[in-house]
Each structure stands twice: as C-alpha cells, then as structure tokens.
Write a protein that binds this DNA or RNA. Structure first.
Length: 241
DNA sequence: AATGCGGTCAACCGCGAATAA
DNA sequence: TTTATTCGCGGTTGACCGCAT
C-alpha cells in the first residue's frame, strides 16, 4: 500500500553538497517549510522530500545551536530520558536549538557510556546491582557515583528512589497533550525535583539487605536511616544515588 | 607511513500516525 | 468508512576522523 517516499529513479543520496544546501535554504526562505514531497522538484533538487526535510531540520535550520552540549543540557537530557525513554523528539523539544537526531547521537555516544561508568543502567536509570550470596549489592562504580546533578538532602544525605510505574502512565499521551502543558510539568524550567515523603508500595529501596519480604520492614526503618529517602509522587523515578 | 580500531555524527530506512481524498 | 498519501519518529548504517600500534 505504501509507496517509497521517492519513486523517482535518479535521486541523489549521501552527503549534501553546498549547492544543494543553498538551493534548499533559498527555497525554504522564500516559500517556507512544508509539503516536503513536492519541495525537491520545486527547489530543483534531486533529492527525495524526506531527505530534504531531514537536512533542513537537522542541519540547515537557522535556529540550531550546534556545538558541544553544556553540562546543564546533559543533565536535562538524562532526566528527560529517565522520564520519557527514547522519545528523542520530545526530549529535543525541551532543548532549544537541539534536534532529536543530535540528542539521540549524543546520548548514544556520550551519555550512555557516562551513565554506565557511573554504575547506572542507561535503559532504566537504575543502579546496576549484582546478586551475590543472596544479597543485592551495588557495583563498585555505583558506590562511587559522583555528581551528575545528584539530588541531595542536607548535604550528605542522598536520595535513592526507584519507580515501578510504567512511565507511559505518567506521561500518557505526553507527545500530544500533557507535555505541552508547561504548568503540569513545571516546564520550561522542568521541575524534576524529587520530593521527599512517606513511602508507598510502588517504591523500592536499594540497599544492601534488600529482600522482598523485608520491604515493609525496610520502609519502617527509613526514618532511622539518613541515607535512604523516598518519593511517593507519581513522577518518581530513580535517577541518582 | 600504513593499518586497524573505535567513536562520532550525518543520513537513510522502515514503520506507524495523521491527514486527505 | 476505506484507501491513499504524507509526515514524523526512532533505529540503524556507513563515511569520516583521530588515535594507537
């Protein structure tokens, strides 16, 4: 049913030449974005519309920032990824001047490794742990996690929060609705503060003696352990230790 | 100098969603 | 409502580059 985006035979592929870029820029400056299917012919380009769109969005758009990611941008990407998963366009939408492709590439080439090195599983943002003699212990790296914007309380106290909820519940239809509501997410200055409150059943604690049947007991011990904290809000996620 | 390797990033591909007819 | 078309997204690929050997 679905046709290839360009059934034309003689289409250029691969890297764009300066001349092609200029043609695309000139055309869009004159006619605006959109109607990508018809654009190549109108602009005199031997490219498929899809390729033109990608080139414009990821490279030629005048509002692109380009250059290295700042530290706060990195932190924001990590936090947003924890919330949204691989929804790069949504993440990029919160980073002015950045494209989804750029964010995705940066994640895959830098941030993934960075998290792994810190003992954090980049897929679920949980600490990487190892089972050892029926004990769950943190990896050595996890124990020396340093300052990727770690939420801390009163200096030395660190937060360990794990969220069992499927994020889809939290950001349901966020692509089209919820996330556009700045107020509900505290954006653009993304409010990801992890509130401290009474534990609930969906939260887990990561620590050395964690067993399922002990969870209740563990929770009760929280107030005695200054290093363990919970957040019960539906947007809880574990990011950092 | 030549080669191999790993990292980066621009571009492509395939698919589902959205929209038009 | 169904079918055709376009758009946008995320995953993947491959060219290029720098570094080590």
């Amino acid at each position: 049913m679905r046709k290839p985006c360009c059934e034309k035979q003689e289409m250029n592929k691969g890297a764009w030449s300066k001349q092609e870029d200029q043609k695309l820029i000139d055309y869009i400056n004159k006619n605006g974005e959109g109607c990508w299917r018809a654009l190549p012919q109108a602009a005199g380009l031997l490219r498929c519309g899809k390729s033109c769109r990608l080139r414009w969005i990821n490279y030629l758009r005048p509002d692109l920032k380009r250059g290295n990611f700042a530290e706060d941008e990195e932190d924001l990407i990590i936090k947003l990824h924890a919330l949204l998963g691989n929804r790069w366009s949504l993440i990029a939408g919160r980073l002015p001047g950045r494209t989804d492709n750029e964010v995705k590439n940066y994640w895959n080439s830098h941030l993934r490794r960075k998290l792994i090195n810190k003992g954090i599983d980049p897929n679920n943002h949980k600490l990487i742990t190892h089972k050892f003699h029926n004990q769950t212990i943190m990896s050595p790296m996890a124990q020396i996690i340093d300052n990727i914007d770690q939420p801390k309380i009163n200096g030395d106290q660190k937060i360990i929060i794990i969220n069992n909820n499927n994020y889809e519940e939290q950001v349901s239809d966020g692509a089209s609705t919820g996330l556009e509501d700045e107020s509900s997410y505290g954006l653009p200055d993304l409010n990801l503060d992890l509130s401290i409150s009474i534990p609930n059943s969906s939260s887990q604690i990561l620590h050395h003696h964690h067993h399922q049947e002990e969870e209740e007991e563990d929770n009760n011990q929280v107030h005695q352990n200054p290093n363990i904290h919970f957040a019960s809000s539906s947007s809880t996620l574990l990011l950092f230790q």
